[in-house]
């Protein structure tokens, strides 16, 4: 059997894996984005307590392996009576882990927006929230879009670790096919190609989005 035949023979395995990988990556991206935004706000708070909590969150999640975080959430929390399914644990781990990286990216973007922008908005009677939403965030997100894209791609790739706790994602399915066929290389090459198609498509889409935004205003 050549690699194409292997792919075709076990297409339902790979198809199933794609679904779970995409599902987890999508949850990780969306929740990580929202959570990251919140954490970046904590990090920039006027008060020390939220700032401290934000820093702990970021430093802990950045400074420990994601696999360890995954195991803590999936196996460790059981001792507190919190039993999560493998998918739930995977989704939570990917979300909180990416939120830490995205929070730092957002913070850089927000602090990089010229102070005069906030002053102009405030001088027009806009409150803090409104200023953030209409003036600061659109400019901040735009300037850190490449870094956000990077993080999204990382999430897709890193989602493969959820196979460790039995989520039937691409990585898991490759191993399943190996078990059936005794072929170790072909299934891995197949999923490598699939991962690449996903990340490459995303990177092209983000590039398109970036160009569309930057046609608006070149400062």
């Amino acid at each position: 059997m050549n690699i194409f035949e292997t792919f075709w023979e076990y297409r339902s395995y790979f198809g199933h894996g794609i679904q779970y990988t995409l599902l987890l990556a999508a949850i990780g991206v969306v929740c990580g984005f929202i959570l990251g935004l919140l954490v970046s706000m904590l990090r920039m708070s006027r008060f020390w307590l939220p700032r401290f909590l934000g820093t702990v969150w970021v430093e802990f999640l950045r400074g420990t392996p994601m696999l360890v975080q995954l195991f803590i959430i999936h196996y460790g929390l059981v001792s507190f009576g919190i039993k999560l399914t493998a998918i739930e644990s995977g989704a939570i781990t990917l979300s909180i882990n990416s939120s830490a990286y995205l929070a730092e990216t957002f913070r850089a973007g927000i602090q990089g927006v010229d102070r005069g922008q906030a002053e102009a908005a405030r001088s027009l009677g806009m409150g803090k929230g409104m200023t953030m939403r209409y003036i600061i965030l659109p400019q901040a997100v735009k300037s850190v879009l490449p870094a956000i894209g990077n993080e999204f791609i990382t999430i897709i790739k890193e989602s493969s670790i959820v196979s460790f706790i039995g989520v039937t994602d691409l990585m898991y399915q490759a191993q399943a096919v190996t078990t059936i066929t005794y072929e170790s290389l072909k299934p891995l090459l197949i999923i490598a190609a699939i991962y690449f198609v996903m990340t490459f498509t995303l990177s092209k889409l983000l590039g398109l989005f970036e160009r569309r935004l930057s046609t608006d205003d070149q400062r």
Partner: peptide
């Protein structure tokens, strides 16, 4: 202060138009 600022326009040295 937001209510007061609605009634006080300000023009800055660096313009501070919203570029987006």
């Amino acid at each position: 202060i937001n209510l007061t600022r609605e009634k006080m326009g300000m023009v800055f040295q660096q313009f501070n138009l919203f570029p987006h």
